[in-house]
Structures are given as C-alpha cells and as structure tokens.
C-alpha cells in the first residue's frame, strides 16, 4: 500500500515537472479549444437579437453555461490517442512495456498533472468572461463546485479511456488518430459545447442521451451552474460511473489483444 502511494506520488510529481516545461504549448492548446467561447458569443448575439432571451436563456445564463462548458472541456481534454498511436508505431512503447506497471497509469499521470498547469490560466479566462458579461453568476455555492469536481473527474476519466481505446487501435491499423478526429467532431456537436441540449430537436436529444457525450460536458455543466436538482445529480453520477466502467472494461480487453499484435506494424 505504501509502495503504491509512493508510486502514485512520484509519478504525479515528475509528470507535473515535465508538463510545466510545456506550459506555453499548453496555453495554446487551451486557446485552440475555443468552441464554447465562440458559441457563447453567437448565442448571446441571438439572445440580443430576440430582445434579451431565447429558449429560456438570457445573456447571463448563456455566459454562465458556456463558461462552465469551456472549463469542463478544458478539464476533460485527452490526447492519449495520439501519444499511443505514435509510440506504438515508432516502437517507443517498448521501454514502457518492460516496466512492471501498466503504461496507462503513466499516461494518466501525465494528463492529470497537466490539469494543474492549466488551472491558473483557466481561472484568468473565466474571470475575464465574468467581467465581459456583467451580472453573470457561474455557480450558486461551494457545494456545487465540489459536486462538479467529482463529476468532471469521472467525465475526464471517461474521455481518457475513450481516447485510450482509440489509440490502441494503432496496433491494427495506422488511422487511429483519424478516428480520434471523428470523435472530436462528434463531441463538438453532441457534448453540449455547441449549445445547451434544450435547443436540440427532441428526437436527436433523445438519441444523444443514450451516448456518453452529454455526460462529458452538458451534465457536469448543469451541476456546476446549479441547474440540476438533487435527484438529477444522483442519476448523472450513476450513469457517468457506468460509462467509465464500460470503457475501462473495453480498454482492458482491447489492450490484451493489441499487445499480441505489437511489433507487427514496423517498430
């Protein structure tokens, strides 16, 4: 147990040091994920044109929703599909496979500690956003922030596992990163980063509810902004955990099969 704790601590602190070396690049990645901010502008423009509010949202509510969506999107970012794809094809995975630790945990430590590097800059943007749209209140109280932290952690883990599953596909063919691009396009429109799901056609919304997408952005945002009542929060946690567990199982199964193929693609 102590050895495990020590392992965790060393991995996170070393990877935090590593990620800090890339802070300039990280800031650029943050700015490149600007969809929620752009959509905030578009929807506020629409609310103004409609005389102050549209579909039950006024300017401040749009601002709160999209700022929360932006934070969430920032916190669940995962590039492990690209990293895995590269390492599998270049053979860089080999040194990691020689160690008595599943390489996933090292990638995970890298991703997780990167969030800490993001944090200061994220707060800056949110603060600026709150100033630009006066009267915006992001969250009602500290409890919602705590619940949100839990919810967004599960969301991050789910996205990480999805990306991991996609990256593992590089064992079989060399277009794994293209699939992650597909995911990216789909996620841009289905997670709620583009618009609150209230605006979606009912049939489409019913379909989206059966995918993991809304549980990555839309529902965590509702938890943070205080829109979700107690029972909904409980349900959201349940479904989130189910999706995370499902992708965990899928990644384990894929990983076992993938390893048997390692090396067949060059390396």
């Amino acid at each position: 147990m102590r050895a495990r704790l020590n392992k965790t601590w060393v991995l996170f602190s070393v990877w935090f040091a590593h990620m800090s070396a890339y802070r300039a690049e990280i800031v650029i990645w943050m700015l490149s994920g600007a969809i929620p901010l752009i959509m905030m502008a578009v929807w506020i423009g629409k609310a103004r044109a409609a005389g102050g509010h549209t579909g039950g949202f006024n300017e401040q509510q749009f601002a709160a929703y999209f700022l929360a969506a932006w934070i969430t999107q920032q916190l669940i970012v995962a590039w492990v599909a690209w990293e895995l794809d590269y390492q599998i094809r270049q053979g860089h995975l080999s040194p990691k496979l020689l160690r008595p630790l599943d390489p996933m945990w090292e990638f995970f430590a890298g991703h997780y500690s990167e969030r800490l590097v993001r944090l200061p800059f994220m707060l800056l943007i949110v603060f600026a956003g709150l100033l630009i749209v006066p009267g915006t209140r992001l969250t009602p109280d500290i409890w919602h922030v705590l619940l949100y932290t839990l919810s967004v952690t599960v969301a991050f883990f789910t996205r990480f596992l999805i990306a991991y599953c996609i990256g593992i596909l590089a064992f079989w063919f060399d277009q794994a990163t293209a699939i992650d691009d597909f995911y990216f396009v789909a996620a841009a429109f289905l997670t709620g980063a583009f618009a609150p799901l209230e605006f979606y056609p009912p049939a489409l919304r019913a379909f989206i509810e059966w995918t993991p997408f809304p549980y990555l952005v839309y529902y965590p945002v509702r938890v943070l902004t205080g829109e979700a009542p107690g029972p909904e929060i409980a349900r959201v946690f349940g479904v989130q955990l189910l999706w995370a567990a499902g992708f965990y199982a899928l990644r384990s199964a894929l990983w076992r099969r993938g390893l048997a193929r390692y090396g067949a693609v060059g390396a």
């Binding site: 629409k46 549209t54 579909g55 293209a178 597909f182 396009v185 583009f194 979606y200």
Partner: peptide, 22 residues
C-alpha cells in the same frame, strides 16, 4: 467519412441555431 462528418456536424449546428425560426 471525416469530411461528411464535419459538414454534417456544422449543418446540424446551423439547424439548431435556426430552430427558433428567427
């Protein structure tokens, strides 16, 4: 497939933006 997905997604976005008829 990626191109169709991108175009489809963007179209979907536009459709949603116009869903209130204005």
């Amino acid at each position: 497939f990626g191109s169709l997905l991108l175009a489809g997604g963007t179209l979907l976005g536009i459709t949603i933006l116009y869903s209130d008829g204005t």
